[in-house]
Design a protein around this nucleic acid. Structure first.
Length: 480
DNA sequence: TTTTGAGTTGTTCGA
DNA sequence: GTCGAACAACTCAAA
């Protein structure tokens, strides 16, 4: 089926945008009519099945992409099922001459995509993949000896030295659409929560989609990049870009982000450099995931296999519910639960607490984040949890144990963030709000707080937990 | 091949 | 209150 009118199928995945989309641009450049498809594939083996918050986002992002495509006279076909069957079936149905997509880097996705490529080639259908979500492909950056980088700083220097991204492309000027095949309705994909509908907080906090991604980026570049180096650590302030879910779903590309910062003349400022290095961490995480595909599942440093994770289900439960008795930890867990997102500084605090105060395996934290974050990303999530645990590449040193009280005092000095998410502590003043168990009864009473009733007592003693953690890490040192 | 300097995000203690 | 050192040892990456 290679008549001149045979369509090109563009398979959308985590690139839910029209601008700067290499696969879409290449499809448009062929001049052939286009069939646009998204496949909800929950059945490919090895898949980390998308979590609930992420599904909510996906629903709205797909709705947004479908609207944008319709505005250009086309239609987005939705399908659910095993992509290894769905894509070839769509090719047969539409008589497509080619399938184009942007790459993904998870082990299961790579295996699946390779299989699809093979299937398509057997029936003489062209299959082409593109880089739509990274500044550099993970196989392009290597040390002098050709090995993948395992340390962030040299990785990032190497990228900056020779791999600055080219100018992002715009939307394709004109798209020639083929008749869209029959698909499933968005509602039938059942991506939204029903009973109960817990997504109210997500709706208040976010607007998925390409247009919204760009307004967030513009607002961030216009007003907050300059001070980013100083304000990014303050969870009560809106100092970060909050682009993570948009980047995860490919509603915006890192190349577009990079150029927006550069166009504004901020790339060489403290704020700009610091911010772009966060994009660098995203790249680095993908680099790690690509070269070490087991990163989400296994300790990067095998000696951590000996670590005794003695935390209990109850402790994990208290952490997930935000009932640890440490206000900055609990505030973060509440923010996550209600908005599907948590400020990065607080992510580090809660992660350190789960691992080093509660001795719960980092994979439990990874799994909870996977289910509850709208920006849940296999590469970033895995790399970050292993970093905190100390089990990862270029990981935090074992003695870096966050003190939840001093972190609260340092980064939420007015207690504004805690007050927002734990209103029952709202009338405590000064440092008291970060350590209510240290406050005398009279003061607590005046603030209307009854510890153990309105708000839990600490479930562990941090000072003791810290000592225990240091001792535990001692036991997994490599034998001399 | 060997050597050398470095390595996101912290805390505590003692001067 | 502020400051520097100690907290380990190891691995990485380049010279």
């Amino acid at each position: 089926m290679t008549s001149p009118a045979a369509p090109v199928l563009i398979w959308f995945r985590q690139d839910l945008r029209l601008a700067d989309n290499p696969a879409l641009l290449a499809a448009a450049a062929t001049g052939a009519p286009i069939v646009a498809v998204y496949v909800l594939d929950d059945v490919s083996p090895g898949d980390w099945k998308r979590g609930a918050a992420s599904r909510w986002w996906l629903h709205h992002s797909l709705a947004s992409l479908a609207r944008d495509i319709e505005a250009l006279g086309g239609a987005l076909t939705l399908k659910r099922g095993d992509a290894r069957e769905v894509i070839p079936a769509l090719v047969r149905e539409t008589g497509a001459q080619a399938v184009y997509w942007n790459r993904r880097y998870e082990a299961w996705a790579r295996t699946r995509d390779e299989a699809i490529k093979t299937t398509l080639k057997q029936v003489r259908v062209e299959a082409r993949s593109f880089n739509g979500s990274l500044i550099v492909e993970p196989w392009t950056i290597a040390t002098k000896t050709g090995a993948p980088y395992k340390v962030f700083t040299p990785f990032w220097k190497s990228l900056l030295a020779g791999h600055e991204p080219s100018e992002p492309a715009g939307r394709p000027k004109a798209l020639n659409w083929a008749a869209a095949p029959q698909g499933d309705t968005l509602d039938s994909l059942a991506l939204l929560p029903t009973k109960p509908d817990w997504a109210g907080g997500l709706r208040d906090a976010w607007t998925p989609g390409e247009v919204s991604a760009h307004s967030r980026l513009s607002a961030f570049v216009a007003s907050r990049v300059k001070a980013y180096a100083d304000t990014r650590n303050l969870p009560a302030q809106h100092g970060t870009s909050r682009l993570s879910p948009h980047l995860h779903f490919g509603e915006i590309s890192p190349r577009q982000v990079w150029h927006a910062v550069r166009e504004a003349g901020l790339a060489q400022t403290d704020g700009g450099r610091t911010y772009l290095s966060e994009i660098g961490w995203r790249e680095f995480s993908y680099n790690l995931l690509y070269h070490f595909p087991e990163l989400p599942d296994a300790n990067f440093q095998p000696r951590f296999d000996r670590f005794q994770w003695t935390g209990t289900r109850d402790q994990l439960g208290a952490w997930t519910r935000g009932e640890t008795g440490y206000p900055i930890v609990d505030a973060g867990m509440k923010e996550l639960w209600h908005t599907g997102w948590m400020h990065n500084r607080v992510r580090m605090i809660v992660a350190s607490f789960l691992i080093k105060d509660l001795f719960v395996h980092w994979r439990e934290g990874e799994a909870w984040f996977w289910d509850t974050l709208v920006d849940a990303d296999l590469a970033s999530n895995a790399a970050s949890w292993q970093w905190t645990a100390g089990s990862g590449a270029d990981a935090a040193p074992y003695f870096r144990i966050f003190n939840p009280v001093s972190q609260g005092e340092k980064f939420d000095p007015e207690g504004t963030y805690v007050r927002k998410w734990i209103p029952q502590l709202g009338r405590l003043r000064g440092k008291a709000i970060h350590a209510p168990w240290t406050v005398d009864r009279a003061t607590l009473a005046r603030a209307g707080v009854s510890l153990g009733t309105d708000y839990p007592l600490p479930i562990v003693d941090h000072a003791e937990a810290r000592k225990a953690a240091l001792a535990a890490f001692e036991t997994i040192k490599d034998a001399a």
